[in-house]
Design a protein around this nucleic acid. Sequence first.
DNA 1: TGTAATAGTTATACTTTTGTAACCATTACA
DNA 2: TGTAATGGTTACAAAAGTATAACTATTACA
Lengths: 147, 147
Amino acid sequence: MNQKIDLIAENLISIHPLLYKSISKPLRTKSSITPGGMFVMGSLKRYGILSMSDIGKCLSMPKPHITVIVDKLIEEGYVERLNDPKDRRIVNILITKKGLKDFEDIKQAVSENLKIKLSTLDKKEQDILATASQQVKEILISILSKE
Amino acid sequence: MNQKIDLIAENLISIHPLLYKSISKPLRTKSSITPGGMFVMGSLKRYGILSMSDIGKCLSMPKPHITVIVDKLIEEGYVERLNDPKDRRIVNILITKKGLKDFEDIKQAVSENLKIKLSTLDKKEQDILATASQQVKEILISILSKE
DNA sequence: TGTAATAGTTATACTTTTGTAACCATTACA
DNA sequence: TGTAATGGTTACAAAAGTATAACTATTACA
């Protein structure tokens, strides 16, 4: 097909386990929120408000799982349900102030160890990684986030 | 602390769920191997040979879980155990030819959908992403892969 | 030599994730 | 109006990941 695309896919597949190890794993010890819950919160932060189905599409998760995750997030006061005035089948999910704040706090805590390792990089490498990670993030969001 | 490092951590945390959705999720439908098994195979491909403990350090997984994953990989013929001649406590894990081949095949299948989305990017974006993902990969490997 | 440390396995319990089917309420539309 | 489609929940089952303790075998070393 396309050699450049193959290279990109190969790179992303290599990056994935490193992020899994450095981000999903510490989550368990640093907070009570699950990886799934964290992903849902991230989607809500990005889009502000999402229906249950939209969340499922964002994360490729089956609807029943979304219900379970959202139920737990509501228990913790991180999100709330909001009936859609136009279509009463739809339940919109909204992140709360507490949710936004704790989301940032958890990200800080989770990335603590990661940041220690990042600080061992020299200035030039940090610059490269800052730019490169920003580009990867933006481009991936543009093609992968919704649907 | 350091603003640039905060930005990098933030970017990586944003990238993580996108890769999770695009790589770990399709794995289930495209193959019989689990994400954990895939991570172990990736580590073995990178380092050639690893003891059980080394694998645990690479992936921050508890030893009993490694045993379970490796047992399953052996069943499938993807890896094999090799006693260490110098220290008989150590069990080294080696990826087989079949393991290497199937690992590549599975990566191909898993990234099929991802590549379709990547192909919607214009030439310039593909160039940027190819370079950026390569840089992110190399730098992250240098600070995150072992221990 | 004997005690502590290390590598790995076994066993067990629990949480999270995944998958499916059945169900209700609402909406779309023929 | 009635039938199909959609959005969401409930219920259930199974797989995968996480965590810990107990155990064997081996090695390190005081």
